[in-house]
Computed example of a mutant assay.
Amino acid sequence: MVASISTNSEQTLLKEVVKGNTIAFEQLFYGYHQHLTSFIYKLSLSKEVAADIVQDAFIEVWLRRHLLAEVKSFKSFLFVIAKNKMLNELRKLANEKSINRQWAALGDKLCQIKPVDDDLEEYYYVLERAIECLPPQQRKVLELSKFSQMKHRDIALLLNVSEATVKTHVKLAFRFLRRYFHQFSGDRIILAQG
């Protein structure tokens, strides 16, 4: 519990953590972990998100421990880190929802694409050619994300890349497909306006 760490002992622990003392860090961790988890849970309403953010916050504290010598209030320092991580997570979720909406819109458009002579083989041919033109990693991410319905986090783990890299690949693949189909809209394929 937070109350178990007095200001004087907290300052002593911080000095020890700056030196790399893992036992002192562990004491800070156990002193603030529960309170911080409750705080983040109230913001996220998700135990998993709260656990991830709290873990990331403490990892960042450890990585930035050289700054702790200047910290007047460790609780404020820790909670600001966690709050910023929560805001980043919310931005990431909003961005992911936006990308998913774009994919849904593209999916709707792709479903509405009709070959001029109603020749579905031509449509599938163009779609296959567009996907084949993607760089290998983008193609793989696109196939896993949209055709296999995998989540970005799972794709990142499978391909040993970050979620941000997965999102970038999806965004770039989406942009390319849109341009590719637009290129053919005057020739053989007409994109429905939606």
Rank of each mutant, 00 (worst) to 15 (best):
M1D: 08
S6G: 14
S9D: 08
E10G: 07
T12P: 00
L14C: 07
L14T: 04
K15G: 07
V18Q: 08
N21F: 04
N21P: 02
A24W: 06
F25I: 02
Q27C: 05
L28F: 02
Y30T: 06
G31I: 03
Y32A: 01
Q34K: 07
Q34F: 08
Q34I: 03
H35I: 03
H35E: 14
S38P: 00
F39K: 10
F39A: 10
K42D: 14
L43G: 06
S46Y: 08
S46F: 08
V49K: 14
D52R: 04
D52T: 08
I53A: 03
I53T: 02
D56P: 00
L63P: 00
R64P: 00
R65H: 06
H66F: 06
S73L: 10
F74C: 05
K75H: 11
I81C: 05
N84Q: 08
N88V: 01
E89K: 11
K92R: 14
L93A: 13
A94S: 15
K97V: 04
K97G: 05
K97P: 00
S98Y: 02
Q102E: 13
A105E: 11
L106S: 04
Q112N: 04
K114Y: 07
K114A: 12
K114R: 14
P115I: 02
D117Q: 13
D117F: 13
D118K: 09
D118W: 05
D118S: 11
D119L: 11
D119A: 12
E121D: 06
E121V: 00
Y123E: 06
Y123K: 15
Y124T: 00
Y125H: 12
L127Y: 14
A130R: 06
L134H: 11
P135Y: 08
P135K: 08
P136K: 08
Q138E: 15
V141S: 05
L142H: 14
L144K: 07
S145G: 08
K146S: 07
K146D: 01
K146W: 06
K146C: 04
Q149F: 15
M150V: 00
H152Y: 08
R153G: 06
R153D: 14
D154C: 00
A156W: 05
L157A: 09
N160C: 10
V166W: 09
K167F: 04
T168P: 00
K171N: 07
R178H: 07
R179I: 00
Y180V: 01
Y180K: 07
H182L: 14
D187L: 13
I190L: 12
I190K: 14
A192S: 15
Q193E: 15
